[in-house]
């Protein structure tokens, strides 16, 4: 579907390098993109308007009525900060930041190994990494509890009720699908660069830290972002590991408000979700610079 649209709309004319096109040309080359953007954003936002409306209505329902914004009252937001919400927020930011940095480093290192070295079991290892991720996690909540229980006997810091323990569990997934994304991207970095550096006497570690990582910044930012968002929304494992309300992550805390079907506090939940979306959007805004400034930054033309 997307491809046919591309076919019809993108002109093959050579674009002037300097100065934006005007008039009809502008519409053909640029203007329609704004239309696509606005339409898509409207579709993205409509369901979220319900969430925003519910967050401003202390006693209302989530989707009981299409008459939105009948009451505008910040009570839910005030109530958020009377409870543990701010410490959940902080916990989430810390846990997700550490997890995503860890994932980028470990995943990036693994991708480097797979991309640049030829060793026995490389192919098998790659395939295994991909397939392991597909294993059903149906019993994860029991298994993770058991494993943290025994680890806690030896390393209390990494056991149950520990945020560090939760980060460790999340890092268990560092070598996963994201490794492939990086692996593929690493492969596009010309090997000649490494070879040249090697001839200059650089070690593989220097090549990795100073050449490759810099060149693959876009994908590092993408993986960091994906890992951050993935961790940010994870609550199934987190609610097994963290039991004290002041240690919860946002996802766990929010889940509690919505978990009891009858007593669900949708207003509070919605307010919490609206605020929780802000760091994700801000992070993406901040990382975009890196995402779109790779090898080819600035030279890609539509």
């Amino acid at each position: 579907m997307a491809s046919t649209v591309v076919d019809r709309e993108t002109p093959s004319t050579v674009v002037e390098r300097d100065g934006a096109p005007r008039g009809r040309r502008w519409w053909i080359e640029i203007g329609w993109r704004h239309v696509v953007g606005i339409v898509t954003i409207v579709i993205c936002i409509v369901p979220l308007v319900y969430v925003l409306s519910a967050s401003l209505n202390p006693g209302g329902t989530l989707t009981g009525s299409n008459q939105l914004f009948r009451t505008i009252d910040l009570q839910n937001y005030r109530e958020l900060f009377e409870g543990n919400y701010s410490s959940w927020f902080a916990n989430s930011i810390v846990i997700c930041t550490v997890t995503s940095i860890g994932t980028v480093l470990m995943g990036g290192a693994a991708a480097y190994a797979f991309s640049r070295f030829r060793f026995q079991g490389r192919q098998g290892g790659l395939t295994a990494l991909l397939i392991v991720q597909m294993f059903p996690q149906m019993l994860a909540f029991v298994a993770i509890f058991l494993v943290l229980l025994s680890i806690g006997d030896v390393f209390p810091m990494l056991g149950l009720n520990s945020r560090l323990g939760l980060i460790a569990v999340y890092l268990g997934g560092a070598l996963g699908v994201n490794t492939f994304l990086m692996y593929g991207f690493f492969n596009t970095v010309p090997r000649e660069l490494d070879e040249a550096a090697k001839i200059d006497g650089a070690t593989h570690a220097q090549i990795f830290w100073t050449i490759i990582l810099r060149l693959v910044a876009p994908i590092l930012a993408v993986v960091g972002l994906l890992s951050f968002i993935g961790t940010f929304g994870e609550f199934i494992i987190a609610k097994v590991v963290l039991q004290r309300p002041d240690e919860f992550t946002l996802a766990v805390g929010l889940y509690f408000w919505a978990a009891d079907e009858r007593n669900a506090r949708w207003g509070l939940f919605a307010a919490g979700a609206v605020l929780a979306a802000i760091p994700v959007v801000l992070l993406f805004l901040a990382l975009q610079r890196y995402i779109v400034s790779g090898l080819t930054a600035g030279s890609v033309k539509g």
Binding site: L48, I229, V281
Partner: peptide, 13 residues
């Protein structure tokens, strides 16, 4: 940044 909004809200919500 706005396009990723659906991804930034909890899926079950």
């Amino acid at each position: 940044s706005l396009l990723i909004l659906p991804y930034a809200f909890p899926g079950f919500l």
